[in-house]
Write a protein that binds this DNA or RNA. Structure first.
Lengths: 221, 221
DNA sequence: TAAAAGATTTAAGCATACTTAAATATTAAT
DNA sequence: ATTAATATTTAAGTATGCTTAAATCTTTTA
């Protein structure tokens, strides 16, 4: 699959499922910086490959096959973003631009290596969810924000969402990473501080950060 | 610059400067898996862009501009190889295949980030030098291919290059690794076999493999 | 509801990067 | 030195991914 095709499918997916925007060829064309004619042409070709449904003058709809491919590209994009952010401390803008290139040059094996190396992240540094091959990972139903977690209870970190660079630096410095287990030592309610145990270390987290850390209870057996 | 152009220039560079092989369109075509006609066509087009010199029925020669571009692509390739090897412990074959994709989706900024992160490496995991944009950092001058090494002489392995999975498996199984010292026991010239001593063990290496193992004399002092 | 405005599609054309088949030049062999 | 074998080039054609311009359809609005 060419980069053009991948970007086309990706854009339709984002417009349709994530942003509830119009998916007629013209809208996609504008987003991709190509002419309407090119987008119509692409739509016709991709519908012949059973990647999307196209009827004249109608909005484009991804087929299950097209949706799967779109999700794989988005997955690669967000894995690279996560990786570049954590490994090289690149800015949120930079990781996007580099991932935009790398996503088309990434084998399935490479994306699985990234996924495991990053400890199966659920969200990229922008707070966008990372799909697996079939769709988005299920949001944990019983997730809480660390700020509201119970004392003496063990949790697993499942989500880190913020637009704040310092938040991510803080998480990185303190090994607050998705998949890691912690124990809530104490909630200093009045001062809105949460004291946790992570990797044998005790740290105190202010509300500004604990509100962006999503956790789920770990049931010991 | 397209991936096709990058691969074309890269191949000419490697043939011309590193492997002393013929650089007529036919040879390049074979290496890239395209038809002779396509290679001739490409040569004509790239010569119009002043990336190489092309005269009918003659070998292709990179211009300074073409050489600079080739070096940048090779640099990106080898930086990715080094990175993938160190970070993910991928095999020598895998890093080559992934780098082959990534090299064309790498911004100059990205390659500088890699270069600094890796602490300005001079060689990739295969033992190949990493060019700096103007040319290669000092190369081992007195390197030979094991196939042509002298009998009774001690050598150090400095480079392993191949596209063949079995070659790397063979090296791995027999502890043929960069930095290891060996002694050439005998050259069976007629049958193109090289017998070496490595880690107290004697092994016989056929030409297909010994041609991909680069060594340099070890001067005992 | 009918015309004007706005989108979409079709048509024709271009550049890239290939293909196969035929023509032509080079190299090797007798 | 010819001829045969081999390699290169030219020619014609294809698929992709675009372009602009004209034709057609949809939507707006008066």
């Amino acid at each position: 699959m060419s980069a053009s095709t991948e970007n086309f499918l990706k854009t339709i997916y984002c417009f349709q499922k994530l942003e509830a925007r119009d998916t007629k060829p013209g809208s996609i064309a504008k987003a991709l910086g190509i002419s309407n004619a090119a987008a119509t042409d692409m739509a016709r070709k991709l519908s012949e490959k059973d990647l999307l449904e196209y009827r004249k003058y109608q909005a484009l709809q991804l087929t299950p096959k097209g949706e799967r491919l779109a999700l794989q590209v988005i997955r690669k994009h967000r894995l690279w973003e996560t990786f570049l952010y954590r490994t090289f401390n690149m800015s949120l803008l930079e990781i996007h631009n580099e991932a935009e290139l790398l996503e088309h040059a990434t084998s399935d094996r490479m994306s699985e290596i990234l996924w495991n190396y990053l400890e199966k992240p659920s969200f990229d540094p922008h707070g966008d969810p990372i799909p697996n091959g079939y769709g988005f990972v299920d949001f944990e139903k019983d997730s809480t924000v660390l700020f509201k977690a119970e004392e003496k209870q063990e949790y697993r970190i499942i989500r880190l969402v913020s637009n704040d660079e310092e938040f991510y630096n803080f998480c990185c410095d303190n090994k607050i990473e998705i998949g890691n287990d912690i124990k809530v030592a104490k909630q200093y309610s009045k001062n809105q501080l949460t004291e946790i145990l992570i990797h044998e270390r005790q740290i105190v987290i202010p509300k500004e950060f604990s509100n962006n850390i999503y956790v789920t209870k770990v049931n010991d057996q």
